[in-house]
């Protein structure tokens, strides 16, 4: 499956405006988000699966991709498009073996070594960061900064999504450093109006769904 999106919404139900994650994600999808990572790391399998099913319905209705963080079993059970793996997850090579060549596999990376492992494991894309300081990512240590992002983008064969404190005010800088796209959590979910925030950010990264582009789609319309 191709990485056909540039804006990657990562969920965190504690930061959803109004406390309603599904409602906030729905607004974000309506605003133009085309890919969502369901990341609620503290939820046990059963609860995560329930939430994943609901998220699958939402994303499918909007033609968006759904990836589940870490839990390959939940991703498979809920019919997600793929998984997003962290350093503590099973290796990307194993996930690829389980999910097959069509599934989307993203990896979280924070330095060039993790990036190299993601490439070796046949992941489809990586997130890199935290680029700027951010509450969600406080556990990962200090921000790595734009120069590290620039080096990672130069070294990477895979699309790189800049993550960690990325929002409207610094999108330009990360894209200029070579990022293919951006990951966002609070910039959209915690915004008073997730629809407007998503629309604004999607515009800044040049997000356009494949369906909306000019031209024919494969065999569609052949006589």
């Amino acid at each position: 499956m191709a990485v056909d999106f540039r804006l990657y919404l990562v969920t965190d139900r504690d930061r959803a405006a109004g406390g309603d994650l599904l409602a906030a994600v729905e607004r974000a999808l309506a605003g133009g988000v085309r890919a969502v990572q369901l990341r609620e790391k503290d939820l046990p399998g059963g609860k995560l699966h329930e939430l994943a099913l609901a998220m699958r319905g939402l994303t499918a209705r909007h033609g968006a991709r759904l990836l589940v963080n870490d839990r390959v079993d939940v991703a498979l059970a809920a019919g997600a498009d793929g998984v997003h793996l962290g350093v503590a997850s099973i290796p990307p090579g194993e996930a690829r073996r389980l999910l097959g060549p069509e599934a989307l596999i993203g990896c979280s990376t924070h330095d060039l070594r993790e990036l190299a492992e993601a490439m070796e494991g046949r992941a489809d894309f990586v997130t890199f960061g935290p680029v700027y300081a951010t509450p969600s990512k406080a556990a990962y240590g200090p921000p790595v900064g734009v120069e590290a992002l620039r080096r990672a983008c130069a070294a990477s064969r895979l699309p790189v999504f800049a993550l960690g404190g990325v929002g409207a005010e610094n999108v330009r800088e990360v894209l200029g450093a070579g990022a293919w796209g951006v990951g966002a959590i609070g910039a959209i979910l915690s915004a008073p109006d997730p629809f407007a925030a998503a629309r604004d950010l999607a515009g800044r990264v040049g997000e356009t769904s494949d369906r909306e582009r000019t031209g024919c789609r494969g065999k569609e319309g052949t006589p």
Partner: peptide, 12 residues
């Protein structure tokens, strides 16, 4: 140049 896959016609 091809005419497919542009975000919209004005950009093309």
């Amino acid at each position: 140049v091809g005419t497919g896959k542009y975000p919209d016609y004005p950009t093309m």
